[in-house]
C-alpha cells in the first residue's frame, strides 16, 4: 500500500506524471468529477490547519468522493490517550485513504505502517509537508514552463520552515537550479539540508540576510512566515517575526516575470499592496494545491 510521507518518496518521473495529471484535471474537470465515487477520505488533523484540510476535502469532493475526519486532537481519541498506530488502524477500517496532520514529526509515517490504506502526510511538525511542495511545483511549472534553469530565492524562516526544506529537496533534482537563501542568522537553512542536498548535488547557492539586494536576480521568490508554534521561546519569536516584509518598494528592481510565492497563511510578511501585482502567485498556489491533491489521491487509489 503506497503512502506519501516525504516529497523524496516520489521520483522525478512520478512528480512529472502528477503535474501532467493535474494539468489534465484543470483542462477537463468533468472527466474526473466521478472518479472517486464511493471512496472516502479521512482527514485526521491533530493540529488545526484550515487551508490544508479544506484543500484535501475540496479535492475529494471534486472527484466525487466523500470525507470524514476531525480537525483537532481534542475531538479525537488521541485526547483519551490512543496511539497514532491504533487511530490509523481503526480509521483504515472506515476510509479508503487518509490525510494526516500531526504536531509530532514522524506521526504520519507511523500511521502509514498500520493503516492498511494509503496515508498522505499533510504536515508533521517542522519536518515534512509533501503536498505543499506538490502545490509549489505545479505553480512553478505553470508559471515558468518547467523546473530547470531557475534562480530560486527562499526567504524568511529557513530553519524550521518545512515547506522550504521539501522544496529544496524537490528542485535539487532538476538541472541548473540556483538557490538564494535569505534569512536572519538565527533562522538559516539547517546544515543537513545545505550539506546533504544542496552541496551534495553541486548546486550553486548564496546565503544572505539582504532581501532587497537579492531580488533582482530571482526568477522565483518564495516567502515564508516565522511560525510562533515552532519556537520554544516566545522572546526569540518576537525578535525574529518581522525580519522580512515584502512591499512594492522592494520589488522596484525585480524581474518583470518574477513569481512571488508563499505557502500561506501569511501574517505580514507580504504586504497586501502586492496582491494585485501580476507577479503575486500565492493564491494561484492555493488552487494548484487542490489540483495536485486530486492528482495524488487518484494515483494512490490507483484510479488514474
Amino acid at each position: 500500500m503506497r503512502s506519501i510521507n516525504d516529497i523524496r518518496d516520489l521520483t522525478v518521473d512520478e512528480i512529472n506524471e502528477l503535474v501532467r495529471l493535474a494539468c489534465d484535471i484543470i483542462e477537463h474537470p468533468a472527466a474526473y468529477s466521478e472518479k472517486c465515487h464511493g471512496k472516502k477520505l479521512a482527514t485526521l488533523f491533530f493540529e488545526p490547519s484550515t487551508h490544508t484540510r479544506l484543500s484535501f476535502e475540496a479535492a475529494m469532493y471534486e472527484l466525487g468522493g466523500n470525507v470524514l475526519g476531525f480537525s483537532e486532537a481534542q475531538s479525537s481519541s488521541a485526547a483519551k490517550g490512543e496511539s497514532v498506530a491504533d487511530t490509523a488502524r481503526t480509521v483504515g477500517c472506515y476510509a479508503d485513504i487518509i490525510a494526516m496532520r500531526h504536531p509530532k514529526e514522524g506521526a504520519p509515517y507511523v500511521a502509514s505502517q498500520h493503516a492498511g490504506v494509503p496515508v498522505i502526510n499533510a504536515g508533521d511538525g517542522g519536518h515534512n509537508h509533501p503536498t505543499q511542495t506538490l502545490a509549489d511545483l505545479l505553480t512553478i511549472y505553470r508559471e515558468k514552463g518547467g523546473f530547470e534553469n531557475l534562480t530560486v530565492g527562499l526567504c524568511g524562516d529557513l530553519k524550521f520552515g518545512r515547506t522550504v526544506h521539501s522544496l529544496i529537496n524537490a528542485l535539487a533534482r532538476y538541472k541548473n537550479v540556483k538557490f538564494v537563501l535569505i534569512s536572519p542568522e538565527e533562522l538559516k537553512v539547517p546544515s543537513y539540508v545545505k550539506k546533504d542536498v544542496i552541496q551534495k548535488n553541486n548546486l550553486p547557492y548564496v546565503q544572505t540576510t539582504d532581501l532587497e539586494a537579492a531580488i533582482p536576480e530571482l526568477d522565483i521568490l518564495y516567502m515564508t512566515r516565522v511560525q510562533r508554534e515552532r519556537f520554544f521561546n516566545e522572546e526569540d519569536y518576537l525578535r525574529l517575526k518581522d525580519s522580512y516584509i515584502l512591499d512594492p518598494k522592494k520589488l522596484v528592481n525585480a524581474k518583470e516575470d518574477l513569481c512571488i510565492m508563499h505557502p500561506l497563511p501569511r501574517v505580514n510578511e507580504i504586504s497586501v499592496a502586492i496582491d494585485q501585482d501580476p507577479r503575486a502567485c500565492y493564491f494561484k498556489q492555493v488552487l494548484n494545491g487542490k489540483y495536485m491533491r486530486m492528482a495524488l489521491m487518484l494515483k494512490l487509489l490507483e484510479l488514474a
Binding site: 498506530a85 509530532k104 514522524g106 506521526a107 519536518h127
Partner: peptide
C-alpha cells in the same frame, strides 16, 4: 518534536 517523544511503545 519526534513522535517517539510522546508514544512510549514505539
Amino acid at each position: 518534536r519526534c513522535i517517539t517523544s510522546v508514544e512510549q511503545e514505539l
